[in-house]
Design a binder for these strands. Sequence first.
DNA 1: ACATTAACATACTGTTTAGTATGTTGTAAA
DNA 2: TTTACAACATACTAAACAGTATGTTAATGT
Lengths: 207, 207
Amino acid sequence: MATAKKVVKKTRNLEKSRKEILDAAFWEVFTRGFQGVSVDDIVKKTSMTKGAFYHQFPTKLDLGYALVDEVIKPMTYARWIDPLKEFENPLEGILAQIKNLIGKAAPQELQYGCPLNNLVQEMAPVDKEFKNRLEAALLYWIEGMEQELKRAKKLGYLRDDVSARQVAHFVVMAHEGFYGMLKALPDPKAFNALYDSLKRYFETIKA
Amino acid sequence: MATAKKVVKKTRNLEKSRKEILDAAFWEVFTRGFQGVSVDDIVKKTSMTKGAFYHQFPTKLDLGYALVDEVIKPMTYARWIDPLKEFENPLEGILAQIKNLIGKAAPQELQYGCPLNNLVQEMAPVDKEFKNRLEAALLYWIEGMEQELKRAKKLGYLRDDVSARQVAHFVVMAHEGFYGMLKALPDPKAFNALYDSLKRYFETIKA
DNA sequence: ACATTAACATACTGTTTAGTATGTTGTAAA
DNA sequence: TTTACAACATACTAAACAGTATGTTAATGT
C-alpha cells in the first residue's frame, strides 16, 4: 500500500507573512518584554521559519520598530481614541473607556500592562531609534486626545480656560500610570482609588 | 633591575562586597533593564569577579530581588517620603519635591525613568517573586505617603472627607506616570502640563 | 602557630543568542 | 513553457549567556 505523500503547497505572501510575524511578536513582546524574547521564540509561534523573519526584518531591532509603527501605534489609537467619537461628551467618554477597558478587565489581562507603555519603559533609554518611534506613537495618542478635548470645548463640556493639550497630556499620563500601578497592584481597590481621583480632577475642568 | 612585584593584599568583607555588587547592578539595571544586563556586565563594573557574585547570590534573579529589597525600596522612600517631613504642609511638600526632583532634573537623568517603576513594568509580569517584592516596595511608598497625608489632615491642610489612602495611591501613580511619560517626551512643556494638572487636582483636596 | 573555613578568583561548560550562508520552490512575466 | 527572482526553508556560526567546578588565600578561632 503506497503511502500518499501529502504535499502541502505552501502559498507565499509577503504582506500576510509580515502580519503573522508581527502578530506573534506582539504577544511575545507584550507578555515577556522585547529583551526577554528571542527571534527564535517569535518564529516558533509562527507557521514560518527564521528565513522568513530575516527576509522581512534586517535585525531584531527593526522588528521592534515595525511593532511600534505598524501594530502598537494604530492599536492604541483604535483602543483609546476612536471609541470616544461615539460619545456626545468626550469627558464622559474618557472616564467610561477607562472604566470599561481597565476597571472591568480581569487581573490576568491587567498584569501585562499597556503594550505602548511597556516598550517606552523598557526600550526608550536603550535605543535612540526606538525612542523616536515610541515618542511618535505617544504624541499620536496625545494629539488624538487633544482633538477630542477641543471638541468637548466646542460643545461646552470643557472649560474654555484650560488647555486641551495640557489636559491631554495628563489624561494619557494617567492611562500609563494606571496600567503601571495595576501591574504590581492588581487590586480593584487600587483601581477605584485612582479612578475616583481622576474623576475629581475632571470635575475641575468641566464647563 | 628587579621588578618589584606589587602584591596588593586584598581585604575581604562580605557585606561591603555585597554592597559594591548591588551598587554596580543598580546602575546597570537602571540604565539598561534587568533582562538587558548580564551577570558579566555587572561583575565587570566591580572590583571583583564572578566567584564573588555567585557567592553572594545563588542566581541572577536573586540579585534582582535583593536590588528591590535592599536598594530600590529604601532609596525610593528616602527620596520621596523622608523629605516631606521637613514641610509643615505635606501637600506643598509633595508638589515641591516633584518640581525639584523631576521638573528641575536634566533630560539626561530623566531618560532613565524611575528605578522602581522600570522594574515593575519589566519584571512584574515575568516573575512572580519579583512581582511580590515590587508590590511590597510600592506599598511601602504608598503607605509612607498615606502617613504624610494623614498628618496633613490633622494639621488642617487636607480635607477631612477625602481618603488619605486614596490620594496616596493617586499621587504615587502620578509619580510613576510622570517618569514614564517624560521618558519618551523629555520636554519641559510636557512636565509643566502634567505638573499644572496635578496642582489643579490638589486644589480640590486641600482644606 | 596552625587548622579551618569563608570569601573570593579562575577556568570551564552547555545552552541560547542574533545573524548568515546557502539551498529550494512558488509565482508571475515573457 | 520557460525563466527569473522573490519568498521562503535549512543548516550553520561566533559570541554571549547563566551557572558550575575547582582552586587560592585572607581572616578567625584555638
